[in-house]
Every structure is written in structure tokens, then in C-alpha cells.
């Protein structure tokens, strides 16, 4: 028996009125796999992450996490839309880092990292703080644990956001254009942290990125989205080295030209 994929999108569609953002997406991600999603804006790539995080509802299809449906649940052998308790149980396996950080501005870096472990996982404060201290150390911010987000640079805020997501011990980490809102000189420190947790943690990672160099060096697979479909996917060497599809070629050409 082959191992269950960590994540499976099965014929998933997303529409806003007449506009189809994702058209019957089929995508499997293996345990521990690092997948980068690239594509022009409006291609539906961010929507993939947002659906998996249940920030968007889906119109058709099923999303599976470790063999269990996320968006649905089994009732009398049939799949029915999931209730909140089911969604929250499956969602616990997923963490997300946002383009705009979305740190809680009224909480220190430490408080940001212990809020969910204490209220959702029911950890004791001492335990949660010990774990958060470890993670803040991992992202290189143990000195800044009592600072508020507004006292931190964009790169530092994003590293706190990564620590906050990791504190929930997710199996899957989603990164949604996490360096796009950063000044260029701060991009490196964030990518360095992602590289490191990719090495040290047994995490499945799905990231939307504009950093082609990072996607090429870091990921096991790259998916190129175009108009709500996966236009081309493959190992980074192939996709960047010898793209088969004309659209991929045009996109890469345009991006590398600009970069």
C-alpha cells in the first residue's frame, strides 16, 4: 500500500460569481514535500493556500488532508459539508504565514506565540513560553520577545509570524508570498529561516512565491499556475531549466527580465 498523500486536492473549483478562479484543480503533495507555486497575479495560486487554510470556501470538489476530508465529513458513507468541529480538528494540522504578517499588534512577540498554544491546545503558560522561547531563538529573535510588532522591522515581524505558526506544531506549513511586503534587504533573513525549518523539521511545505531563485534552490517541485489551472509542474531543475509550455517560458522570461 502506498502512503497517503499529505494533501490532496480532488477536482476542486472556486468561483466568484461568473469568474472561475480555480478550475477543477487536482494536486497531491507528499509527506515532507516542499512545493512552490508560481504564476502571474490572478492565476489562482494564493487561492490554493487560502482554501487549504479554510479561509475560502470551495464550490466543488474535496480537499483531503492525510486521507481525511477537510472540507467535508463522512456521514452514512457519504461526504457532506463539514461542521466547524470537524474543520477545526483537521485544520490543527495546518499553519500559515501571511504576506502582511498579521501579527496581533496588541501583543508582544512572546504573547503572539503563546496565545494559540494556551487557548487552543490548552498548554500551561510555562510550557507554552518555554516552547515559544525555543522557536523565537530558532528564528533569531530571542532578544526581541518582549517587543510589540510595531517595534520590529518587517523581516523581524515575519520571523515572529513563522515562530507563531510553528508553535502550533503543524504538519503542513503554508507560506503566502511571505517576502512580498518586505524591503529587499530584509528578504534574505526570512528566507534563511524558512530554509532552516525546512531542514530541521519534518514539515510539508506549500509556498506561493515570487522569489524564483529560492523556489529553484529550496523546493522539490514547482507548480506554474495560469488562469486557474496548473499549466506545468515538475522538479525545479526541469521547470526552470527547460520549460515545456510556452506560457511558462513567457512567464519565466518576463520575471527574470524584471529581476
Amino acid at each position: 500500500m502506498t502512503e497517503q498523500p499529505m494533501v490532496r486536492f480532488e477536482n476542486v473549483s472556486k468561483r466568484y460569481g461568473a469568474l472561475t478562479v480555480l478550475d477543477e484543480l487536482n494536486l497531491e503533495i507528499a509527506r515532507g514535500e516542499k512545493v512552490s507555486v508560481i504564476g502571474p497575479s490572478g492565476s489562482g495560486k494564493t487561492t490554493v493556500l487560502r482554501m487549504l487554510m479554510t479561509l475560502e470556501t470551495i464550490n466543488d470538489g474535496v480537499i483531503w488532508v492525510e486521507g481525511e476530508p477537510l472540507t467535508h465529513m463522512k456521514k452514512n458513507g457519504k461526504l457532506v459539508p463539514a461542521d466547524l468541529a470537524h474543520i477545526r480538528r483537521i485544520r490543527a494540522k495546518i499553519g500559515m504565514v501571511f504576506q502582511s504578517f498579521n501579527l496581533f499588534p496588541h501583543m508582544t512577540a512572546m504573547a503572539n506565540c503563546i496565545e494559540a498554544p494556551m487557548t487552543v491546545l490548552g498548554m500551561k503558560r510555562t510550557e507554552a513560553e518555554a516552547r515559544a522561547a525555543e522557536l523565537l531563538d530558532l528564528v533569531g529573535l530571542s532578544q526581541k520577545k518582549d517587543h510589540y510588532p510595531s517595534q520590529l522591522s518587517g523581516g523581524q515581524q515575519q520571523r515572529v509570524a513563522i515562530a507563531r505558526a510553528l508553535a502550533m506544531r503543524p504538519k503542513i506549513m503554508l507560506f503566502d508570498e511571505v517576502t512580498s511586503a518586505l524591503d529587499p534587504e530584509l528578504v534574505g533573513e526570512v528566507l534563511q529561516v524558512i530554509r532552516q525549518i525546512g531542514r530541521e523539521h519534518d514539515l510539508t511545505m506549500l509556498m506561493v512565491t515570487h522569489q524564483m531563485g529560492f523556489a529553484k534552490e529550496f523546493s522539490d517541485r514547482v507548480c506554474f499556475f495560469y488562469q486557474g489551472k496548473i499549466c506545468e509542474q515538475g522538479p525545479p531543475g526541469e521547470l526552470f531549466g527547460a520549460p515545456k509550455n510556452e506560457r511558462t517560458r513567457q512567464f519565466l522570461h518576463a520575471v527574470l527580465e524584471a529581476g
Binding site: 487554510m53 499553519g95 501571511f98 499588534p105 496588541h106 487552543v120
Partner: peptide, 27 residues
């Protein structure tokens, strides 16, 4: 309140009650 605050709360799997009590109302 910025939409991102609600989204971060969902991503951290906070319950609706915790989201209001700890994240939304204090801001």
C-alpha cells in the same frame, strides 16, 4: 479591524470565542 487579524486567528485555529476575547475586542 483588518481582515488579516481574523484570518490569522483562523490559521491558528482559535475558537470564535477566543478570537473575540483575545484578538478582536482588545483592538
Amino acid at each position: 479591524i483588518h481582515r488579516g487579524q481574523w484570518e490569522a486567528s483562523i490559521a491558528l485555529n482559535l475558537s470564535a470565542w477566543t478570537t473575540f476575547r483575545d484578538i478582536i475586542i482588545p483592538q
